[in-house]
Design a protein around this nucleic acid. Structure first.
Lengths: 137, 137
DNA sequence: TCTTTTCATTGATGACTGTCTATGTGACTT
DNA sequence: AAGTCACATAGACAGTCATCAATGAAAAGA
C-alpha cells in the first residue's frame, strides 16, 4: 500500500512531463466503474504509456526475474539488444512512471520493481469485484 | 474465458498491423514471472498501446458506464469532445486490440466491452498469486 | 593524477500517432 | 428515386517517440 495516492487529482492538465511528481504509478477508480474524467484519463494513460512499449516490457520483466529482484543497466543492455543510452532512457521512463525504483550504489545504478505498483495499475483496468482478495485469510 | 488464446505465439515479428488476427486482447505469462521474449513483449505492447491513450480510456469507460453496456459513436462524440472520424478511429483501435466488440445494427454501430478482455490484460501485469480467484466457488 | 568504468544527457533523425477536413458507403425514410 | 443519417475511409499535418552516436559526469582503481 501507500502506492497510489489517489484523491489528490492535482491540476496538471497538460504539463505532465517527466520530472517532479512521479504520477505515482496509477490512480483512482477502475475504468469500468464510472466514466473517467479527462484528468483521470490523462494520468492513467501516462502510466500505461510507460508500459506500452516492447522494450520496456522486456526490461520490466528482466528486472523482476533477476536474482534479488535487482538489475543494473549493464545487466540489461545485452539481452534486450539496445544501446546503453536507449536502455537508460527507458529505465528513466519507468522510474518516472513510478514503476521502478532506482538505487545508485557506487558506479552502478540498481533498479527494482516498486512493490505494488504493477498491481495497482492492473487494478485500475479490471473490475473492483475481482480485486477483493488481497489475502484470503 | 476463451479470451486469451495463448500458446499460439504465431510468427508475427513486425507486421502486427490492424486487420486480420486481432491479437486477442492479451497473451501469455505475467511479466513478473519470467523474462518476456521479444515476440511476447510485442504482442502485449500492442494491446497496451491501445489502452495507453486518454481519449481511448475515456471511450472505454463511457462504453462500460452506458446503460446496457452498449454505446454507439453518436453517444460518445459529444462527451469526449472529439470529431466523429476521430472517435471512429479510436474505436477501431480498441476493436482491433480485442477490447471492444462491434455490432452493426442498421445505421448504428454498437460497441461493448469484450467480456474478460480487460481482466486478462490486467492479469498479465500483476502477480499470478493475486489472480488465483477466477470465481470464489 | 590519470585511466577506466558505469551511467546520464544531448542532439539528430526516421517513424509513428492523434487529430482534423473532406469524402465515400450503406441503411433507413419519404 | 432522392434525401438523410450514422459511420468509415482517405489524405494531410503537427506533435511525439524510439533509437542512435557522441559526449559529459561521477566513482573506483592504478
Amino acid at each position: 500500500m501507500t502506492v497510489n495516492a489517489c484523491g489528490t487529482l492535482d491540476p496538471m492538465p497538460r504539463s505532465v512531463r517527466s520530472e517532479a511528481s512521479p504520477t505515482s504509478a496509477t490512480c483512482c477508480s477502475p475504468l469500468t466503474t464510472a466514466p473517467l474524467s479527462a484528468a483521470e484519463a490523462e494520468r492513467l494513460a501516462h502510466v500505461l504509456k510507460a508500459v506500452a512499449d516492447p522494450a520496456r516490457l522486456q526490461l520490466l520483466s528482466m528486472v523482476a526475474a533477476q536474482a534479488g529482484g535487482e538489475a543494473c543497466i549493464c545487466d540489461l543492455t545485452g539481452p534486450v539488444g539496445l544501446t546503453q543510452p536507449t536502455v537508460s532512457h527507458h529505465m528513466k521512463v519507468l522510474v518516472d512512471a513510478g514503476l521502478l525504483h532506482r538505487d545508485q550504489r557506487g558506479k552502478w545504478a540498481y533498479f527494482r520493481l516498486v512493490a505494488g505498483a504493477l498491481d495497482a495499475l492492473a487494478a485500475t483496468l479490471t473490475d473492483p469485484a475481482k480485486q477483493r482478495h488481497p489475502a484470503p485469510a
